[in-house]
Design a binder for these strands. Structure first.
Lengths: 227, 227
DNA sequence: TTCGGTCGCTTTGTCGACAATCGGAGTTTT
DNA sequence: AAAACTCCGATTGTCGACAAAGCGACCGAA
């Protein structure tokens, strides 16, 4: 699992975890109202810990609260996603630049091996797109780790990552972009291996821009279907 | 005030607000233990709302909790600050790039006027460094606003901004950097006026790198004094 | 029919009390 | 005297109940 912290002592942390997972997997729909009593009973706990969990998620921006009206799952509209990808571009670009200077040769080799694995998965079966999707996130997260910057890891790992996964679950049906994406990943790894931080940043930025274009088109298509 | 939302209906939100302010102003020292009962009484509320506030702050990363051991104010050690400035460089650089395309001419003119005001303040009195400090933050935040990217605004405004202010309150005593900083600000505004996003991003990045070098040196000095 | 008001239910916000856990002081044992 | 054990106080985690606010339905009047 890529989920941050499975084992937690307190009920509140446990609820935080379960809710976050339910939200990113879409089990809880976007904009859905979160009833305290109902969720508390579902998780087998009192309303106190659950409320604390909601407050924690509020801080993480996974839910939005309005006083006296309860909490709702955030909605990822087009503008929000666009903003998210812009932030990602900045953050992951920087992560790449730093990683080029900080990662060990072994870590870079591991990254390359990860891509080999992805390639095999794609060759073997185009169907299992989901796995590639999670794999893609894994690749990006490994680079964040490689930067050694804890704050970058937190931001990309714990927060936006979740929003990202939400988005993936909605749009993971298209496999078109997996192969060009893999090539771009390879280019990035090569830049890292050459310790060319500047180029690595540039490539990652382009990669993310491309991903956004792809997602953006898909949203357009979806909206047309609805209309 | 630059504080986000003063008027809130619920006690919990109020506590969140007061605590955040107390933390960034240093009224609550870094690493200080936060006693629930004591704070609850100080704020004139029960422990429930206060606990929710702590959870919210935990999500904002202003406090760190360990199960069964309570919450403590985060400590900004050298590594954390370094990481923070790296993230800032990425985020504010991107904000500049986007702002160059999104801000109206009027907004850019306002920005320029803001710098005029700062210049007068500096010329009139070198002593009131704090005001310039807040003014500097104001400048940066206005650019974030100008990007029109809500997520950038949230991240730079609500979260790290707070950490930044914490840092400022610790290191606001040196006025050395105010004048070169102002010049760099002017260059950035000029790039924005020319709609040169690329240059604006580059300048902002350098500006923040310079700020970090300045702060870093100061920390070194402080550490030597202690030793 | 439609608009406005009132009533009641549901849900949220808050509090106080109880149980569980942790840290430390004091004491005992080797 | 040092180490470990035990007990106690303090603090956190959790629950249930009460108060308040919001939302919707129902009813009445224009």
């Amino acid at each position: 699992m890529l989920i941050p912290h499975p084992p937690s002592a307190t009920l509140s942390d446990l609820a935080t975890h379960k809710l976050a997972q339910s939200i990113v997997t879409g089990e809880l729909a976007q904009g859905q109202k979160l009833n305290e009593a109902e969720l508390a009973e579902r998780f087998g706990m009192g309303r106190g810990p659950l409320r604390e969990a909601l407050r924690h998620l509020e801080g993480m921006r996974l839910v939005k609260r309005t006083p006296n009206a309860g909490a709702r799952v955030v909605v990822l509209d087009r503008k929000t996603l666009s903003d998210l990808y812009t932030v990602r571009e900045a953050l992951e670009g920087m992560a790449c630049r730093v990683a080029a200077a900080q990662m060990t040769d072994d870590e870079i080799a591991d990254l390359s091996a990860l891509l080999d694995k992805h390639e095999k998965q794609i060759a073997k079966q185009g169907g299992k797109v989901y796995a590639q999707s999670e794999g893609d996130l894994d690749f990006h997260f490994q680079i964040a780790r490689g930067s050694g910057n804890q704050m970058l890891m937190d931001m990309l790992g714990s927060e936006q990552y979740q929003l990202l996964r939400m988005c993936r679950y909605r749009t993971s049906r298209n496999a078109q972009r997996t192969k060009p994406a893999l090539n771009q990943h390879r280019q990035i790894v090569e830049a890292l291996a050459n310790r060319d931080g500047e180029l690595a940043e540039l490539l990652m930025r382009r990669h993310i821009q491309g991903a956004w274009r792809s997602i953006s088109e898909m949203i357009d298509k979806e909206e047309k279907e609805v209309a």
